[in-house]
Amino acid sequence: MGLLSIIRKIKRKEKEMRILMVGLDNSGKTTIVLKINGEDTSVISPTLGFNIKTITYQKYTLNIWDVGGQKTIRSYWRNYFEQTDGLVWVVDSSDLRRLDDCKLELDNLLKEERLSGASLLILANKQDIKGVLTPEEIAKVLNLEAMDKSRHWQIVGCSAYTGEGLLEGFDWLVQDIASRIYMLD
């Protein structure tokens, strides 16, 4: 038995998950992570590179990788010890100008074979701002319905400021990953 299979066993036993937060810069990834981690969200600067936070939810341990939107993220897709179980794609619902960019980047990301087993949560962030696109509208623009049938995905509107929608989103993600990776017990 090699070390890797041992580690995989532990991971399963300890119910750990690796979640990658991705999306264009300024979409609110870091704010969301701080918010669910119960940290102060008032002073935030753009992420250069990435940040890992461990947060527990129910009986699961989430290792959340908050990846700066300005950098190429290939390096974070996987490492030797673990693969990516969940992807959170954060969209700035108020940034209509860059929605095309957003679609392009998401499509590119999803083409990546190595990430194709991961569950995908799309967070339509900044819903607290008036007049922003609704999750349904964003789903349409991103053409989510056309996604590969084997992909598990969900879109949820949220606000990192008020916290609205975050619980719902992460709950879906965690349950979905759990149902794939762990027993449904």
């Binding site: 918010k35 669910i36 981690n37 119960g38 461990t54 947060i55 527990t56 916290g163 609205e164 619980l167």
Partner: peptide, 24 residues
Amino acid sequence: MGRVAKLNVSLNTSNKIDQSNLSV
């Protein structure tokens, strides 16, 4: 004990967050 926070269950009410986190 590493300091690991819980994903806050009462997210939707922003006032409560800080308190519960403090206690954690």
